[in-house]
Design a protein around this nucleic acid. Sequence first.
RNA 1: GCCCCGGUAGCUCAGUUGGAUAGAGCAACUGCCUUCUAAGCAGUAGGUCAAGCGUUCGAGUCGCUUCCGGGGUACCA
Length: 554
Amino acid sequence: MVFPFLKYSKKSPGETANEIGNFIVSEIQEIESFNVINGFLNLVICDDYWVSALLKAVNEENYGFTNISEHSKLVMVEYSSPNTNKPLHLGHIRNNLLGFSLAEILKANGHRVVKTNIVNDRGIHICKSMLAWQKWGRGETPESTGGKGDHFVGELYVEFDKHYKEEIEELVNKGYSKKEAEENASLIQEARELLIKWEAGDKETVNLWRTMNEWVYEGFDVTYRKLGVDFDKIYYESDTYIAGREEVLRGVDNGIFYRKEDGSVWADLTKNDLDHKLLLRSDGTSVYMTQDIGTAKMRFNDFKIDQMIYVVGNEQNYHFEVLSILLDKLGYEWGRDLYHFSYGMVELPSGKMKSREGTVVDADDLIAEMEDYARQMSQELGKLENLTREEAENNYEIIALGALKYFILKVDPKKNMLFNPQESIDFNGNTGTFIQYTYARIKSVLRKAAERNINYKTELSPDTLLSNKEKDIIKRISMFPDIVKEAGKEYSPALIANYCYELVKEYNQFYQDHSILHESNTIKRNLRLILSLTTSRIIKKSMQLLGIKVPERM
RNA sequence: GCCCCGGUAGCUCAGUUGGAUAGAGCAACUGCCUUCUAAGCAGUAGGUCAAGCGUUCGAGUCGCUUCCGGGGUACCA
C-alpha cells in the first residue's frame, strides 16, 4: 500500500509502487517478484523461504512458546470464585474456561503463573441456605438423598428465596412498601442474626456452616475435575474477611475512611468521581469489598506477585475500579495495577440466567447432555468401531468437552454471548470437534507412514516446489508464535481458537486435493508429511492453550 | 437520571489495530466417498456493517449526535 509515500515520491501510485518494488526485489533475496494493483504493491516470496520457515517450525523445540525461567514475571490469576450456596452454571463455566486458558496462555508467553480460587464461603447468602436447612431440611443430607452436595445446598437456597418472597408478598398486602417488606421480613432478619452469630464464632452455627460447605466442596470437585480446571492455591473468604476488616479499621484510624453515627464504615470516593462506598455494616459485619481487600493483602504476603489478574464478569467493573482505588489509598503500590479481566455475560434465548429463579443451565447437566450427544453421534456415524469400550467412552468425553470449551472460548471474552442449548451443541463447521477430527485424521496418516517405514524427517529439499495451498498453510504455521504473543498481550483465548480454526480449515482443503502417502514424488511426499506433522503439533498446542484435549483417533 | 459496554448475512460469530470485491459456521439448495477418516471438501444464495454527520487519498474500524439492547449505580455477591 503506497499511498502514504506519495507525498515523498511526488509521483503516481503506480510509478511509486514500481520503483519500490524494483528496489526491494534487487535488495532482498527472499523476494522473488512483485506486482502492482490499484496502488497496492504485492511482494512474492520465493518457495525456499517458506520451506525453511516450515523446517524452523518443525525442528524448533517449544515452537511458538517462550520458556519460563525463575526470573520470569509471576502472575497470579484468580478465577472461578464460586459461592458455596449453589452449584456451578453456564456462567461459571465461561469463567473457569477463560481463567484456565488465560493461565495456559500466560505460561506459553514465559510467565510463571499461580492459579488461585477465592471461595466465597461466608456471607448473608450462605446463611440463607443454612437457615433453609434448619427450617425445612428435615435433617436430610446429600448422602441420604443421593444427590450431589452442591445441588443439595443450591435447592435449599432456592427454598429460602421462595419462602422469603411469599413473606414479602404477605407484608406488602398488609400495607408495607416493597422495600420495608424486604427489610423487615422475619426470614431475612433470621438470616442476618445467623451471620452475626457466625462472625461471633457461635459453635452450633459454625458447625452447620462447616458441614454444609463440605457438601458443596465435594460437589464442586467433581465438576472441576470434569472441566479439567485446577488451582495452585485456594483462599477462603472466611479467612480473608478478617484481614480485610483489620485493614478497613486501620484505614479508619489513619483517616482514610470514616465512620458514620450508626457505626458503619465508608470510603469517600467523590474525589475519584465516584460516590461513597460501604466497607463495614453498622452491625459490624463485612461486605464483599471488605473481603476482597483482605484477600489481596494475604495474597501479596504469600507470593511475590508481579501482576494480579482477576477473572470476573463485567457486571463487577465498578467493584474492581473501587477495589483498585481503595488498595491504593491503603498504601499498597500494587493497588493501581490490578487487572480486572472483565468478560461478558452468557445469555440464554430467554434472557439472563438467574440462580434464584432457576433459569440457569446447570454445568453438570450440560456436560452430561453433551456427552450423550457425542455418544449418539459417534454411533450414528459408525465411528470408533475399532476402539475398546473404554477408549470410546474416553472419546465421548473429549469430544463433548472439546465442543463446549471451543464454543465458549472462540468468542471474544469481552463480549456477551448467547448460548442456545438446543442449537449450540454442534459437531460440524467451526467447532472444537472439527479441529479434533482434523487432528485425528493427521495422526492416522502419520501412523500409516510409520507402518510403511516412511522416514519423513530428513529429506526436505530446499528445491521443493510448493502449491498455493501448501504455501498458505506454511504461512499460517509461521504466524503461530505471533498469535500466541498477541493472545498473551490481549488476554484472549479467542485469538488462539480462531487462528487454529483457520489453520485447520486450510489443512482440510489441502488434504482434499493433495495426496500424501500416495504421492510418488518423494520430495513432495516428504514436504506434505512434515507439513502434516507440524500442523498436528500446532493444533495440539493451540488446544492445550484452550484446555481442550485432542484424540488420536475418532 | 448518571456511568460503562455492545449493535456486522435469517441465527451464532470473525474482521490482523485506517487499506484492495466485508469473511466463516449454522440453517436452505447443488455436487463430491472403489484412493491417506465424508464429524470432510467444492459450489449457489444471503449485507444500506443500527441511522446520520464529520475527520482523509481511503472508515465496519477514529470523533460527534440519535435510536435500540445489556450491565452498573445496594448495609446483595
